[in-house]
Design a protein around this nucleic acid. Structure first.
Lengths: 247, 247
DNA sequence: AAGTGGTCTAGACCACTTC
DNA sequence: AAGTGGTCTAGACCACTTG
């Protein structure tokens, strides 16, 4: 069994989480394919079994391990290996980088419009309300990868002291800084899409190519939809993997 | 606050889970949008706070609630509302039914072939090994909805006492009964697909229609890939929603 | 029979949010 | 200050898997 370091006193569970996750990723337990028993982990880490179980519960909910009574804590090596999971939120630039490309931004075009019926319905605001719309092109190794259109209601803005430049970083920063709200969860609808003229030009692909379209609605802690994004992904750059589990 | 029943002695946490989930689904807490405090839930249900917390942790990992220190346990009503989530495994017939259609089976065509390079690589078996392949068409309200091609290695079969008829029910049943293994988790790759001649005929749609293609690899508890499925979804029948969270 | 994770209790104290 | 969920302990017993 590999060496497991003892922890000092500072957020025991968080430290245990980091240490064990790092060890999982490094393949420290590859030989057995299992984590040591909870009792042993508790001893080695110098914490109680409950804390160990909390940490393992977190890993399990992320799909990294499976626990079975009488068997042990099995490491889901195939899940650990996946770099890009659709069921986990990631910022575009991070996503591009994690997939092995150099990320950059092609263009960012903010504008202000009135909400049409669709936008009003999705964002639960009145038709005609002022919307901030940001069109954005993300590049991977200099090639167009993601074309994204963010929509957020102007009424969310608490601090009006912003410029259009503040819309250039990831939209989540803007939401936090000027709207004092954050997207804690989002529901994304996936659909296939036949590339049209406009998109073909933006993504530099042939018209008629089938691509993935994601319709993403982000909610804050109060269950209010605060960000609606339409995203078009150029083909051949990402793999879209989802971990599916029985509940 | 709504009435919360007290439990007798029989799998306390499991009963608490069922009761609270039913109440969540019925909208018993819609007025506040929150669950009562953990301490109160523990009292009302007649169980300790730890058990309550275990149940809430399960709900949280399914995305149904969000817990915030100092605020409370927020109910994610938009998540509870979603009938079909791609990040949760469901059998085809159940999926069709949950989306409001009457499910039926168009055809089931089992066959035995030798593994080609792709199948061998995905299922981690030698090229040329015997494979059971089942082609299946699922109907929704009598219309073609899902065309699925299951692949599993013959070497998994422990009990050879089966007939082709045993391949007609969901393939998971066959795996459990004759291979003594079950898919505990799967990784699914999503891609857009341009309907070709063959698929157009099967799904009764126009050639050139963009549809969703899912490449699903199911693993057993030993991390062995046991089931590889290719699935083609007719357009306009399902919505593919994924809950995305930060971890 | 031995070893594993699962359930459960009773309590203490901490960190964050709201008033 | 009061109320919320988060962390943590120390222990008991149960249910399942394996030899």
């Amino acid at each position: 069994m590999p060496h497991i370091p003892k922890l000092d006193n500072e957020q025991l569970s968080s430290k245990a989480h980091k240490i064990l996750l790092a060890m999982l990723r490094e393949g420290a337990f590859d030989q057995s394919g299992k984590l040591p028993p909870e009792e042993i982990l508790a001893q080695k880490l110098g914490i109680s079994r409950s804390v160990v179980r909390d940490v393992l519960a977190a890993f399990e909910s992320e799909g990294f391990i499976t626990r079975r009574r009488g068997i042990g804590t099995i490491i889901n090596k195939h899940v650990l290996k996946v770099t890009s999971r659709l069921d986990l939120e990631k910022e575009f630039l991070e996503e591009v980088a994690d997939c092995g490309y150099t990320p950059s931004v092609g263009f960012v075009t903010p504008s202000v419009i009135k909400a049409d019926e669709e936008a009003a319905e999705r964002l639960e605001i009145p038709v005609g309300e002022e919307l901030i719309v940001v069109e954005r092109l993300i590049l991977a190794n200099g090639q167009p990868a993601i074309y994204c259109i963010d929509h957020l209601s102007s009424s969310l803005i608490i601090d009006n002291n912003y410029s259009l430049n503040d819309l250039k970083p990831p939209i989540f920063s803007f939401l936090e800084q000027y709207c004092h709200c954050s997207v804690q969860m989002d529901l994304t609808k996936i659909a296939p899409y036949l590339t049209d003229d406009h998109l073909a030009e933006i993504l530099n692909i042939s018209q008629g190519t089938p691509i993935l379209y994601l319709d993403e609605l982000g909610y804050d802690i109060h269950q209010k939809p605060v960000l609606w994004s339409k995203e078009y992904y150029a083909p051949g750059i990402f793999e879209f993997t989802v971990l599916r589990r029985k509940i």
